[in-house]
């Protein structure tokens, strides 16, 4: 009899499937079609970028090979549609006749590298500053708050333009990196330096409201250390908003890298990024619009996909937030 009751209990419990907050968010995300498609595109693009050498080998394209036989004397591909053919799926870049798809793939690697490292560094600093300010409040928070205000009010764009040359030269002098590596370091460093205040404000506001919740008082009443309260009680509640802002700011930095390379203060040729390709395309836009449309279209597609994934993540993780 007892065993019968027990098994009845077990089967009743089995019918109600227990779900963690993460599983619930995942189910909600899966129901969002736009989000799922965007996530698919984002993942495919990231994979193509990550495995660019393999992809290029399979397609038989080479980013550095100059197809001088396929362009005319003014640098325009001789074949129709900008040289789109079986060998060159997206055509050739004008001027020197490199394969466009291979250049887009290899170029995206630097763009993604800058975007990911910048976001990572900015969120790291933002988390520390935000948690310290929000948890300890008082004078520390005042000083940190004024400093973030200062950075937010600072004309960061002009700063980066103005400091680009001397700072890159300084980095090269120290011997840490040369050429384009130095420029990548400069971009990541400065973009994240001006990027973290946004994150820190978000984290601070979250911590300020979380620390007043009773479960934090409960932890204090049990004698929990500050470390435990911050890492075990507060941090797990911060991941949802942090994931959302990360996914929304990634495309921003992707575009920022393109802008600075476009302006000529980022990565320099012969290396390729999407910004450099766009800068090239601009010069040929009247005679050879294909190149511009494909390059700009790729950037728009990726930035849009990342943004939509961010939106979908926000809806999934925080159903109460409004659009």
């Amino acid at each position: 009899m007892v065993s019968k009751l027990k098994s009845a209990n077990a089967s009743a419990a089995g019918q109600i499937i227990s779900r963690s907050p993460r599983q619930i968010a995942w189910r909600r995300f899966r129901r969002n079609k736009v989000g799922m498609v965007s996530a698919g595109i984002s993942i495919v693009v990231l994979m193509l970028s990550l495995f660019a050498p393999v992809v290029c080998k399979i397609l038989g394209i080479n980013p550095d090979e100059l197809n001088l036989d396929l362009i005319d004397s003014s640098g325009i591909p001789t074949l129709p549609n900008g040289g789109i053919s079986r060998e060159h799926p997206l055509g050739l870049t004008p001027g020197i006749g490199r394969d466009l798809l291979a250049n887009l793939l290899y170029g995206s690697r630097i763009s993604f590298l800058v975007a990911f490292l910048t976001t990572g560094l900015a969120i790291f600093i933002g988390l520390i500053v935000g948690i310290v300010g929000g948890y300890f409040r008082g004078r520390i928070d005042d000083y940190l708050g004024r400093f973030t205000d200062f950075l937010l009010a600072f004309p960061a764009f002009f700063m980066i333009v103005a400091l680009s040359e001397p700072m890159v030269a300084r980095i090269q002098e120290t011997g840490i990196a040369q050429g384009n590596s130095a420029r990548v370091i400069f971009l990541i460093f400065f973009l994240s330096f001006f990027g973290w205040p946004g994150f820190s404000r978000l984290v601070r506001s979250q911590v300020l409201s979380l620390r007043e919740r009773d479960f934090v008082t409960a932890a204090q009443a049990m004698g929990a250390s500050r470390k435990r309260i911050i890492f075990k009680e507060l941090m797990p509640n911060l991941w949802a908003p942090v994931i959302v802002v990360v996914s929304l700011s990634l495309p921003g930095y992707l575009a920022a890298e393109a802008v600075f390379s476009f302006l000529g203060i980022g990565i320099q040729p012969p290396a390729t990024t999407w910004g450099i390709l766009l800068d090239n395309a601009r010069r040929f836009v009247t005679v050879y619009p294909n190149f511009f449309l494909i390059t700009a279209g790729s950037l728009v597609l990726v930035v849009l996909a990342f943004n939509l994934v961010g939106d979908a993540l926000r809806d999934a993780l925080d159903p109460r937030s409004e659009r």
Partner: peptide, 11 residues
């Protein structure tokens, strides 16, 4: 605590 919704860490 009074408020059982805020007294437990949702995560």
């Amino acid at each position: 605590f009074q408020d059982p919704f805020s007294a437990l860490n949702p995560r």
